[in-house]
Design a protein around this nucleic acid. Structure first.
Lengths: 238, 238
DNA sequence: CCGGGGAAGTCTACATCGTAGATATTAGGC
DNA sequence: GCCTAATATCTACGATGTAGACTTCCCCGG
């Protein structure tokens, strides 16, 4: 018989033989769990159950729950491709921004991690995968002609704006897609009209938010402004 | 004897008579706990202990822990003053930005809440205190001559940038203030030099981050860009 | 072929958490 | 003074992260 022993130990523990785990398999299962059921569903026991393993065994692949969370953020950020040798730095930053935006929309439950984990880990102790974008963007900017310290300024303004936009866009989510009145779609009817007249009046505008366009406009302003304020070439040769 | 009965029930429970609690007192104690010991220290039992009350009694003032967290963010945001009738909208937005930045620096442990709670609560269900800045800034912009929908665009770009900046600044924190070599102050010596040459080289620039200046430069670019792209008066009459 | 040793896996147990529900205590109206 | 309703307290339950002991497996030198 194929798929040999598996004596109905269904709870994750007391199962005899399985394929070998690896850090990546564990992290991918963790990401899946977060995507499907939210951050708070990612517990050691639930993850063990999803992998048909004893929860304690997971500590081989992540020292503790915090490390597991770090691993998930790293896994997600690894999906972000950066071409540091692109001579068109503005175009490249634009593309990265849209990629990261889509990544965030694909994994909305991970965004709190992306934003929150770095607040409790000093730069030097972060998972390397989360620092690589920083290093590569610095390279991109320096190669494009920026001073090292100007590159850092540009990076800060750019990444700050990008994360801010993503947070903004994700928090304006629709509460009731079946409803067709804008006020109700956003749940705004609960706000006292005297105190929130403009917010309520803006319901239609809020309800059709074109995130990509809004991001792009902001980037245009920011990037051209940065290029002007600092000493940078507009677009280099091909 | 003053301070009458208090028969050494030190654990927070079994204490006889105290001044009456109120939502504000509870929230202020919660904020204190978060400021002093971090978010994870804010548990019902610890808070009850801090107030010398039975933990269960707190459910009179917050329906559950999530509501307590919402209350804390509301309390912090209430410290932010907005003068919606200022005709100099750019100046006002600048001031608000710096105020919020300082507020975040004063309560760094609350920032994850500021940024994270709205992701799990639709607009209409948020604590009113967290929506008031939005309403007021919309008012400021509309009074300054912006279309309602342009005002929303400006608000989004502005607030996104602002939150992004705050996140950025807070995550570049110093790990070892006693050390005087920049690399070590930030813990960057652990990074593999081959893979992170520019990041390591930028250690000195990273170590002296002038957050206020950086925020201000970004705002200058963003606000003037927004004023130009949309149809807005540069600065209105006094 | 054996058997010993280290790694991988399992299990039990503990402190802590949020909170439902029962119980005790208080305060105010008649 | 007593009944009632609000308020306060207690107990208990099902989770959680993770330390530490125990068991099982695999491989490698003899």
């Amino acid at each position: 018989m194929a798929t040999p022993q598996q004596p109905a130990g269904d709870e994750g523990r007391s199962v005899t033989r399985k394929i070998r785990l690896s850090r990546e398999i564990v992290l991918e299962a963790a990401l899946k769990l977060v995507d499907e059921e939210g951050l708070e569903a990612l517990t050691m026991r639930r993850l063990g159950q999803a992998l048909h393993r004893d929860p304690m065994g997971l500590y081989r692949y992540a020292a503790n729950r915090a490390a597991l969370l770090d691993g998930v953020t790293e896994l997600v950020l690894n999906e972000l491709a950066i071409f540091a040798d692109d001579p068109d730095w503005q175009g490249q930053l634009r593309r990265i921004a849209h990629d990261l935006r889509l990544l965030a929309l694909r994994h909305p439950n991970v965004v709190p991690l992306l934003v929150t984990r770095p607040l409790s880990t000093p730069l030097g102790l972060r998972p390397l995968g989360t620092l690589r974008p920083l290093e590569q963007i610095l390279g991109l900017l320096i190669d494009a002609g920026f001073t090292a310290s100007d590159a850092l300024h540009v990076y800060r303004a750019y990444y700050g704006f990008l994360y801010g936009h993503i947070l903004n866009e994700l928090q304006e989510f629709i509460v009731d897609p079946d409803e067709n009145e804008a006020l109700l779609r956003l749940g705004l009817h609960r706000l006292p009209p005297k105190e929130f007249p403009r917010l309520r009046a803006l319901a239609p505008a809020l309800a059709d938010y074109d995130g990509a366009a809004e991001l792009d406009e902001g980037l245009t302003i920011l990037l051209s402004g940065l290029a002007a304020h600092l000493s940078a070439p507009p677009v280099k040769k091909g």
